[in-house]
Design a protein around this nucleic acid. Structure first.
Lengths: 202, 202
DNA sequence: GTCTATACTCTGATAGAC
DNA sequence: GTCTATCAGAGTATAGAC
């Protein structure tokens, strides 16, 4: 990406990333076209390529920011807090991400569906390391009898899948619920209930 | 699709649909190319187009079969069975679908991520109708005090998201678990535990 | 910095030989 | 039924005027 020096460059760089997020999230890397991204960004295609040297560069620039944002809620699970409230706070933060950044969620989903060709190193590295760390914490809480005993890694998977579903399958969720629903508000109540019930020791 | 009349036509039609499933599931509709599908199928591109008139025709042919298979487990939830065992059986059947037909799951995910341009009528029609029917059944069971009270539609969403996650995010699941794991076997145990705990009346 | 023009490749689809 | 050849259009990317 061109290092932004002027306000115009700043604005156009942002517009391209915004547009790229739209298009890549909907159609995946190969399904997205520079034509479409340029149109959404309100630029000509050559002008887009003045700011980013290639389609790949736009995609990679988007992915770079993504994983950090994605892992942040899990990283904030506090070892010294109340176990059940910590997990619930994590669930709610993750659901808020789905609500506020659905395109980022779908971009991530597309990348994984393609076999994670760009993100695999990050998944096997920092992501796995963080999950291992937090799984150990959950296990300690289970050993201390403060939350119910469950496979800690699959517990984390369940938080991911349940929250991301509301971003990635948004159109299906809304179509099935019908009009007059607030999917994310209902999901918040539902998931709070669900995990509280699940985690409270027997 | 060409109506198969000979064994060769039968074999080639199948090979094309198999290959199309591979490629569409990984790259989505726009990201898939006839070149790649033909290569995977072991045919030339013109020969592929002898069997299917267009790229669209291959994709639609795959989608047609999909929804029926996808809804089948939910349709089989029996109003006269034991409520908790019926839901658990549904969860296990859905997880088996993820294990045995991961490409179909990813094809579906891709279609929804794109905004369900082809499947929306089926989602608003038969799928919503089936969910409404089964949600009413779940609600009856809740009213009778035979399962815990939860939002029935979001309960169904939770089954979808938790089971499909193991197909759609397979590479991530395996990378995070590390070697020496059987994701689907562990998920079966985990989800059985989870829903039993969740659904048992207080 | 942005545009027009264009090079070159890929993609979906067709024609016609065999 | 399958292949080679090919077309028109879309796709990524570059050159060069302004």
């Amino acid at each position: 990406m061109l290092k932004p020096r002027t306000r115009i460059q700043e604005r156009n760089s942002r517009a391209i990333l915004e547009a790229g997020l739209d298009v890549f999230a909907q159609h995946g890397f190969r399904g997205a076209t520079l034509d479409q991204i340029a149109e959404v960004a309100g630029l000509s295609k050559p002008n887009l390529l003045y700011y980013f040297p290639s389609k790949d560069a736009v995609y990679l620039s988007l992915l770079e920011q993504l994983l950090q944002t994605w892992l942040d809620p899990l990283a904030h699970m506090n070892p010294d807090g109340d176990p059940i409230e910590e997990v619930l706070a994590y669930v709610h933060r993750k659901l808020e991400l789905s609500r506020d950044f659905p395109r980022e969620s779908r971009l991530f989903a597309n990348e994984i569906l393609q076999g994670a060709p760009h993100l695999m190193p990050d998944i096997e590295g920092p992501l796995k390391a963080l999950v291992d760390e937090k799984a150990a914490l959950l296990l300690r809480w289970m050993d201390e009898g403060r939350i119910a005993r469950l496979h800690p890694v699959h517990l984390i998977f369940s938080v991911w899948s349940l929250t991301q579903h509301y971003a990635d399958f948004d159109v299906q969720v809304r179509a099935v619920l019908g009009p007059g629903h607030d999917p994310f508000a209902e999901a918040g109540t539902f998931l709070d209930h669900m995990f509280r019930r699940l985690l409270t020791p027997a």
